[in-house]
Design a protein around this nucleic acid. Structure first.
Lengths: 147, 147
DNA sequence: TTAAATGCAAAGATTTTGCCAAATT
DNA sequence: AATTTGGCAAAATCTTTGCATTTAA
């Protein structure tokens, strides 16, 4: 909202940002909440949502409103692609460089002013090929925040 | 759930399927609900969700768990790409043929078994370039189901 | 002291479920 | 008659908001 003002670097913000930068698991808000609770036992989910929103508005992290119902957050704010496992719903960065010209091409082919694009691969991760987990177990994992 | 059994083509399913096939607006469940209510005044939202889910499981339509929080549905079940307007949140099909080999390449570059991919462009549609609508108005439009 | 941030809980929004009645084979 | 489906409402999920309190400049 207030892109102009510089926010204070509160302990909560610092911890959340560091937590996101340290992992490559693309956690949901709830998972971030569990992660930072170890260091900030009194933090609330609402605050986590608020701070994640703020950080992504400022481009310090990336909100992934993509695939799946719940949003995920990415500590790496640069543009890149992802691979999502259909089985365990984990997400990794895709080893594929940006398609730099595709936006311009689409811009020309349509009346749209293209701002960017998202690309996500869907597949089965190595772990799940060996030990496929059931949808129930999958949901349990997510709920307990230990993806 | 029961991919084996062939479902009966009830009036509700027929109307919903026809409604989706006739438009290219990629409506949400709620919007589908509004669309079919004209012909089926007594249908319930729950039924719409159930039928949409069932149709997409059978590959007759496509569920877009993509960009934005709420799911959209696409009467065109073949793989294709989309352009979403950041302003009005409308979605059109992208004039770009499938990148047929990219899945195989990603398959080779990772340990994953790649099943497919999603590509979505983000941009400003021609309408919104001329008449940008406010976020408030945008939400009102969605809520009233008249995208 | 003043403005901004947090914690907590309540409210919102969207989607899914349970259950009984109604429809279909 | 046995199943399946539909309607309704309640439940479940995930996210946002209001407000009193705390924190920091």
């Amino acid at each position: 909202m207030d892109l102009e003002k510089k926010p204070r670097m509160t302990p909560q913000r610092k911890v959340i940002l560091e937590a996101l930068r340290q992992v490559n698991t693309h956690p949901s808000a709830d998972e971030v909440y569990e992660m930072v609770r170890k260091r900030l036992p009194r933090i609330s989910l609402g605050t986590v949502y608020r701070i994640l929103e703020m950080l992504s508005e400022r481009g310090e992290i990336r909100k992934m409103e993509f695939g799946g119902t719940l949003k995920r957050f990415d500590g790496n704010p640069t543009e890149h692609y992802h691979i999502r496992c259909v089985c365990c719903d984990s997400i990794i960065d895709a080893p594929l460089s940006l398609m730099a010209t595709i936006d311009r091409e689409m811009d020309g082919a349509t009346g749209y002013h293209i701002l960017g694009h998202h690309l996500e691969f869907i597949g089965l991760c190595p772990d799940c090929m060996d030990n496929p987990i059931s949808p129930d177990l999958r949901r349990m994992r997510r709920t307990s925040g230990s993806l």
